[in-house]
Design a protein around this nucleic acid. Sequence first.
DNA 1: GTCTATACGCTGATAGAC
DNA 2: GTCTATCAGCGTATAGAC
Lengths: 182, 182
Amino acid sequence: MSDTRTEILNLAEKLIRQRGYNAFSYKDISVPLQIKNAAVHYHFPSKADLGIAIIERTRIHFARDSKKWDQLAPLDQIKAFIGIYEANQAQRLRCFMGALGHSYETLPPAMQAVLAKASAEIRSWLEGALEKGKTSGAFGFKESAIEKADLIITSMLSSLILLPITKDDVLANVRNSILMSL
Amino acid sequence: MSDTRTEILNLAEKLIRQRGYNAFSYKDISVPLQIKNAAVHYHFPSKADLGIAIIERTRIHFARDSKKWDQLAPLDQIKAFIGIYEANQAQRLRCFMGALGHSYETLPPAMQAVLAKASAEIRSWLEGALEKGKTSGAFGFKESAIEKADLIITSMLSSLILLPITKDDVLANVRNSILMSL
DNA sequence: GTCTATACGCTGATAGAC
DNA sequence: GTCTATCAGCGTATAGAC
């Protein structure tokens, strides 16, 4: 894997998470990297190839991170998960699901497929973590683990979207609300 | 106000809420309406004018609806608010904040301004409704009203985004989780 | 691997006739 | 109000030289 390939991947991911898939172009990549349009196409023949590569890389990262978190105490697992969003907020970036999900219908089918897989993996990890905390007695929430997981994922995702609009720390509010409810 | 103008507004709103602001064009409007590109530009000289008109119309609708809801019992007010999202889900549409928020940075400044206003109005109405329910004893939640409001808005917004991806009724899960926590 | 050159449809937008 | 005609620029993508 060439250095250029990785640089393209890094920049494209940043652009997608700043502006969305439909609002960045090969030019936005080739100009800052000081290469030509055609060079980007050499590494990623179509825009969908680029999008898929980014999602796949994120899946690998999440699998690695969540595996590490499995050794933590239940509450720390959830805090680690929320930490992803806090890190994103610090960089003024959205999570990849918030960046791609909104335009799901306009995405190439191959991208839709990997995005759905990634979404299922994250959701199911979080559900499991909440379920374990509940049966161990660490958590006292009343609803089902999947209901709580959906509440956490959805509210975290939108917090990053609303930050630039409200200019308020929505994420901190949501985080507090969630941690109090576990 | 001509009929054509309203038809353009209606179709554009639907397109924005299905695909986002950057993924629809004047052609997507002129072809189905069987008029020419230039006719759309006559009613809305620039794309930003169209976007702003849609947001302003939504602000008016929300002001009217929320005013009506003020007469309801606290719990019914929140249920009415959640009802907006359930209606959207039934039509496979996103809420306008979920449709526009993700591309906030790429929006024309004039659109950013009205979107921020609309966001503040919704947030502040919901905060007020929660606050009143809390002081009247109808609600027993522990966090502040703005924290709860942010939790509700963010989780509702993303539920509509995640529906096509998970193919699961995320909104129902989130709704249940929220109602249990009030 | 990267370049030059190029294709070609779509984009938002305007001028001027009717 | 709506039309025809037209614009310059951008979008993704490809062919072929080096």
